[in-house]
Design a protein around this nucleic acid. Structure first.
Lengths: 217, 217
DNA sequence: TGTACATCAGTGAACGCGCGTTCACTGATGTAC
DNA sequence: TGTACATCAGTGAACGCGCGTTCACTGATGTAC
């Protein structure tokens, strides 16, 4: 009422045109939107709004919407890799090499599904840009250890072979068997009929599924 | 050049306002669009265009876009059920009850994946409307035998128990283990990194996956 | 140390797009008497 | 068998929406001499 129309400068004095690091700010905004609503929610205009910048400023840093979605997708993959690594690091160390190999392998699956449940928007975004495995080793998709989710799976499977648990003859292509099972369950849990499951139920079925793969491979 | 602007009546003399069976025509159009481009391609205006009717005529038969998508989704489920049944009926009959039970179970998986590869748009549409299993027995989702895809899976698992292959204690919840694996592979094959696989490669990995589940359950 | 100039990172306005949906309507059909 | 009237299944025009993207621009920054 008593206020006259004042410019909306609030706190931060906007002394210059320069944003500073708009490229990163847009990626950050895109990541937030993905977290909130999945890949479809990654909207160029909204990203610029969140960065406090005009709608077309994004084009100084990204060719188009697809380009922004691409980097957001990579970042989501990196987050997934981080979750898997965390799951593996929480494992108790045993002297038993065979048990260790099994545990590391299972942790890939449980970490994968834990991430999908904790961050369904990011999870869906991580797989929203189809590629034929070209980016399976892209550094921007890697977690702290430098490995991407796919590489973490490969490493775990190699560990199974080294431990003498998985016959080397069955190793080729086994990535896709394990991946299928775990990815399918993640889908059922976040977008499918298991959406309504409690955390306990989800944990239970996750354990059973991972055991099924571990044994059936 | 020589033509004066004539009404676009071509062949069919439009003698009356009535379409006749617009409800079915819209469902049919929706199904076509789903086949061509998945659930996102099911567009109300386009459906009316294909039915040769004005844009708002759809509202006489469907409350809104979601309502149309719902019936299209059910129809896609029915198509999936049909594919699974076809796979099962192609099975040679053996005297061996155990082998039969295994074969019927595996056929659910291979039929599922065969359908996903043959009709990716319909497949994606079939799972585009999330529900918590409420519609798992809806007659509009059933194939020729009257069973929905989910019911066909249940029946196959029951068969495994009856044949003494699957311990009854492991039967509860096993739907979701099998479903996860098969659904995940379907996803990798149509939208994921296995998109580029040849038919032969896809068949090979499908067989391995189904065997893994059959054994790991 | 100063200056001319290219480049860079923003702005503001506007575009076309196709969509879902609503409005007031109209002519054909079915029904009660 | 005829007639009044309700209902039904369409029409045509318009709405607002939010989006991605392009245009011509401008002021600040960096660089060569």
């Amino acid at each position: 009422m008593g206020e006259t129309a004042a410019p909306e400068v609030v706190g931060t004095t906007r002394s210059t045109y320069r944003h500073g690091d708009l490229e990163r700010a847009l990626l950050q905004a895109g990541l937030e939107m993905a977290r909130e609503g999945g890949p479809g929610a990654v909207v160029l205009r909204e990203a610029t709004r969140r960065a406090g910048v005009s709608a077309n400023a994004a084009y100084r840093h990204y060719a188009d919407r697809a380009a922004l979605l691409g980097v957001v997708c990579d970042a989501a993959q990196a987050a997934l890799a981080t979750a898997i690594e965390a799951e593996q690091q929480a494992l108790p160390t045993t002297g038993d090499a065979v048990a260790n190999a099994h545990a590391r392998f299972r942790a890939v699956g449980t970490g994968y599904i834990r991430f999908a449940r904790a961050e369904p928007g990011l999870f869906r975004t991580a797989f929203s840009v189809p590629d034929n495995l070209e980016r399976r080793g892209a550094p921007t998709r890697a977690g702290p250890s430098g490995l991407t989710p796919f590489q973490l799976l490969e490493a775990a499977l190699d560990g199974l072979v080294e431990a003498g648990v998985l016959p080397a003859a069955r190793r080729p292509g086994s990535e896709f068997l394990a991946w299928s099972a775990v990815h399918g369950l993640a889908t059922l849990l976040i977008d499918g009929p298991l959406r309504a499951a409690t955390g306990q139920q989800a944990d239970g079925i996750t354990d059973r599924l991972v055991a099924m793969v571990d044994q059936g491979l």
